[in-house]
Design a protein around this nucleic acid. Sequence first.
DNA 1: GCCGTTTTCGGCCCGACTGTTTTCAGTCG
Length: 576
Amino acid sequence: MAASRTEILRMLAEMARLTALDEGSPQSFKARAYEAALAGIEGHPGELTGLSKTELTKIKGVGNSIAEKILEFDTTGTVRKLEELRAKYPPGFVELTRVPGLGPKTLKMLRDRLGVVDVDSLKEALDAERLRELPGMGEKSEEKIRRALERLGMHGKDRRTPLVEVYGLAHSLAARLGDLPGVVEAVPCGSIRRFSDTIGDVDIVVATTDPVVVMNEVANLPHLSELIGSGETKTSFLTHEGLQVDVRAVHPDQFGSALLYFTGSKVHNIALRQRAIDRGWLLSEYGLFEEEKVVASVTEEDLYAALGMEYVPPPLREGRGEVEAAAGDRLPRLIRREDIAGDMHYHSDRSGDGRSSLEEMVEAAIEAGYRYVAFTDHGEDLTINGSSREEMLAHRDRIRQLDDRYPEIDLLFGCELNIGPDGSLDYDPGFRLEFDWCVASIHSHFDLPAEQQTIRVLKALSDPAVNAIGHLTGRYVGRRPGVELDVDAVLEGLATTGVALEINGALDRLDATDEVARRAMAAGVDVVIDTDSHHTRELIRMDYGVRWAQRGWVTVDRVLNARPIEEIRARVAARR
DNA sequence: GCCGTTTTCGGCCCGACTGTTTTCAGTCG
């Protein structure tokens, strides 16, 4: 039997989790070794199955022992060591690690001294007031754990929230703190700044000469439901939705190092700190130090430069090879918002779910600085939102008229075709070729087997009218997983046909994923970064799409809509 | 468990806050 890449990653993640528990600390070197191997493999593009032990140990973070475990897992389907750990720490006990405030040390003590093995037995021990008998524990600890248990499942330590649900809140909170007296700047950091599609909690760093004012403001925010902790420079609280927010105040002179530290990721930070150590320095949120002397601290640019690296944009800071690349001046020229020349997935109220008129959408596009835009209203197969042939042809006339009226922008008559369960598309082949540009996307039948989904998408992209595949999996972050398909097969299809992979900037979609985008780069597939706007206020999604693409290491030379319209037209023509 | 332009052994990122303690361990990020 051969284990898939995903299964191997999951196995290593479980090994890391259980080893941390067994060793009594997530900082345990063994646990971190598993995490390092996990990161190394995630950054390793190729297949894993079939690799020899020697080849496996060439992967960063994978040594003899982990290579053997991967081989064992690949051939037998399990790992003896993992089975032992599972027996020692059954799921009910592991569940307890999700309780905020309960770490491995405390959990071990609870089990050894009080026989606590799961949530129920923990509750019994709490009711009997037995925890306070233990060293280091008291009445307050009992109360804290009791409260944490009550809201377990609502927001355990490992709960991730879709970015779309917190993005607005985080920025409005930062804006509010930014207006306080003494505050120079307030910025959401952490996974929000790295632009991860899900986030654990909200981290806001405030540059201020007067941290007391900031801490007071935070303690009295209307969003605050429960105060978790508050000190002179740091306050943590839960919102009414159960989201944890950490606000940290630093002196403006230390803002760069604070931003760097609180943006993470953890893996990225550790790598930077290691670089500092290699130079005999120390890097913390307060700055880069040589003994007592500050080497750099005011801006992130200063810090990277001092460490002998190119500046690393936040979306890249995931420990996926960016540290090595930046140190060797090998960071790719990533796509940037100012490179974008147009939007190739764009709706008007011709679509049933469109909310702004053609004129409004054209003017919004001009306002955004675009040189061209493709209107891609839904085809007839989406019965509620789509348009008939007659409607589409009338629509085309209006687009041509507007194209004449607005010489500063080129308007394309396009369509968002619906990919049926069998890969079929709207209209007929001849009519489809009437369009200047077509994006084809999945809108239903999300549960078909992966093999069928792959055939479905491959069939759609083989149609000469199709120029891009929209929101590849149809996922909604945190709500709908999206279709399963053979990504490599699809990428190969895209590469051979010259059809582009869309990176959809809608915050709840962010589809294709950053991971797929990166594989697309390796496979020689071009992308289009689109907003899929249905309203003039959705054009901001281009910022999101670009940052998401950066997470996928998408380079400017591979983005179709960073090129002149003539090149896009030529590409469409060449395909027919 | 991994790793080596000082090392095949002895290291492995750094600091705030809490609760329980009089100096610190545990947890978290």
